[in-house]
């Protein structure tokens, strides 16, 4: 199976290659590993998980915070912070993919990620296409936060 990766940031392209190099069962295991590796929230967010953006009752709650770090020199960097309960490993796994793929990129690089990138991982058959919408929604939320912080040229 081949997926297009040339229009993706390097870390995301690498993950796409990892996922698509293995069969469906192993893809689920990879997703599970990423769900376990999702970094804990820094302490400054610890008491804010009540603000988790709870998507309506069919879906698991997800906490998402986006920061843009501005050093005096060089490009600003997008920092992503996620939390989701352990009983939502798929949500945590999707967050893990996006964290590994996007954390540390510049706002312009994040905004340039194609909206269909979540479908490049070959997960639709392993988790069902309907569930992939969770990751699509997560990516669009990240891009919305970044765009609000970093308006860029008018579109």
């Amino acid at each position: 199976m081949t997926s297009q990766t040339t229009d993706l940031p390097a870390a995301m392209a690498e993950l796409v290659e990892d996922f698509t190099a293995v069969g469906e069962a192993d893809r689920l295991q990879l997703l599970l590993e990423l769900s376990k590796e999702l970094p804990d929230l820094p302490s400054r967010y610890a008491d804010r998980t009540a603000e988790m953006e709870r998507v309506h009752e069919c879906q698991s709650p997800l906490f998402l915070a986006v920061e843009v770090e501005r050093e005096s020199e060089g490009e600003p960097a997008v920092r992503l912070f996620f939390d989701a309960p352990p009983e939502a490993p798929t949500t945590r796994g999707f967050a893990g993919i996006l964290h590994e793929s996007l954390d540390g990129l510049s706002p312009a690089q994040v905004l340039a990620v194609p909206d269909d990138a979540p479908y490049r991982f070959g997960l639709a058959a392993a988790v069902s296409p309907l569930r992939m919408r969770g990751m699509v929604a997560m990516l669009s939320r990240i891009k919305r936060h970044v765009a609000a912080d970093h308006p860029g040229p008018p579109r």
Binding site: L28, L32, C58, E87, A88, T90, V127, S128
Partner: peptide, 25 residues
């Protein structure tokens, strides 16, 4: 389960996964 990976995180011994999307639809 709703979450397609929850079974993989641990389940009742001997239990098997039946996914509503992948197996029943």
């Amino acid at each position: 389960d709703e979450d397609v990976l929850l079974y993989e995180t641990g389940h009742i011994p001997g239990a098997q996964k039946l996914d509503w999307h992948l197996d029943l639809n």
